[in-house]
């Protein structure tokens, strides 16, 4: 069918209009506001890079920046390794594959808010379920005030997130596994490639598409982490769980420092773009090389 230019434009208009007004315009406006001293809804004066200069010396922001990156690296690496192992495991057991996949997906159907409260309860220091279990297993020495200790708080939050999404990530790897033609696996079997050897030479290269999707999803998801620290720790103790999203929210909607909040948002945007472009380039190059 030859679609006329007029028809093509008309079809695009509703989506483009909504997108420009409620996504692109706020984006541009946010960048502009970050160069002003606006507080609350009142518009401010242009102050150049002042907000960014203040940010460099703001210990909360530097902590948030560091935590966001550490959290993202831990989540991406641990979640993908774990999910890959689970997917391999599920793939080798077709009989129970579907039931296990469904069970593992259940946590990902919960709201992050619900997960936050559930894990706050599990981590509770005085007689909380986790510490009780460790008691029973004779691990009393390793018990922690999980969310109250600056050394464990961020990793405890990461653990809750990994619990939530490992099944989802594994399901993506599994569907990639199931898309590998049976003949390839049979040929590998005949050539005597099993276990680790088969994984390294056959599975790993062929799981490239799923790896790309999963690493990208996990990265984007954890760079914007908000709900978990917002509910579980409020960024504490001692800024150990501050994240960029959290400080954006706190500055804009608790302190009404709109200009400062948007300046931090610009930093998050730049970080996301840099990480995103780097990742895409690396993963593409890897897929092409294979």
């Amino acid at each position: 069918m030859r679609m006329t230019r007029r028809a093509a434009v008309l079809l695009v208009v509703p989506a483009v209009a909504a997108y420009i007004v409620f996504a692109i315009y706020p984006l541009v406006r946010g960048i502009a506001v970050s160069f002003t001293d606006a507080k609350g809804l009142a518009s401010g004066h242009f102050i150049g890079l002042q907000n960014y200069r203040v940010m460099l010396r703001d210990p909360t922001i530097t902590a948030a920046f560091r935590n966001t990156i550490v959290y993202t690296i831990v989540v991406v690496v641990v979640q993908n390794s774990l999910a890959l192992a689970v997917a391999w495991w599920m793939y080798s057991l077709p009989r129970i594959r579907n039931a296990i996949r469904a069970s593992l997906l259940l946590p990902a159907m919960m709201a992050l808010v619900a997960v936050s409260y559930l894990w706050s309860f599990i981590y509770s220091p005085l007689g909380g379920p986790l510490n009780i279990i460790m008691d029973t297993l004779g691990l009393r020495r390793l018990e922690q005030v999980w969310l109250g200790d600056p050394h464990t708080a961020l990793m405890s939050i990461a653990a809750a997130y990994i619990w939530m999404y490992t099944g989802y990530t594994a399901a993506i790897y599994l569907s990639n596994y199931l898309a590998i033609p049976a003949s390839v696996m049979e040929a590998a079997m005949i050539d005597g490639a099993r276990g680790w050897k088969r994984f390294r030479t056959i599975d790993w290269p062929l799981l490239g598409p799923a790896l790309t999707v999963n690493v990208t999803l996990a990265t984007i998801g954890s760079l914007r982490v908000f709900d978990l620290p917002f509910i579980m720790t409020k960024g504490g103790p001692a800024n150990s769980t501050q994240t960029l999203s959290l400080v954006i929210y706190q500055n804009s909607f608790a302190g009404f420092e709109f200009a400062y909040g948007t300046a931090i948002a610009v930093v998050l945007l730049v970080l996301t773009v840099v990480v995103g472009v780097t990742l895409t380039t690396l993963l593409r190059r890897r897929e092409v090389a294979l």
């Binding site: 695009v12 948007t262 996301t272």
Partner: peptide, 27 residues
Amino acid sequence: WSAITYQVFVAGLALPIFVLITPLYQL
């Protein structure tokens, strides 16, 4: 132009919502 439209939409996939919340509130 349709290719550009597509690119602009796809770029939005990575846009963190927190970059938008403050200006979105003002709007």
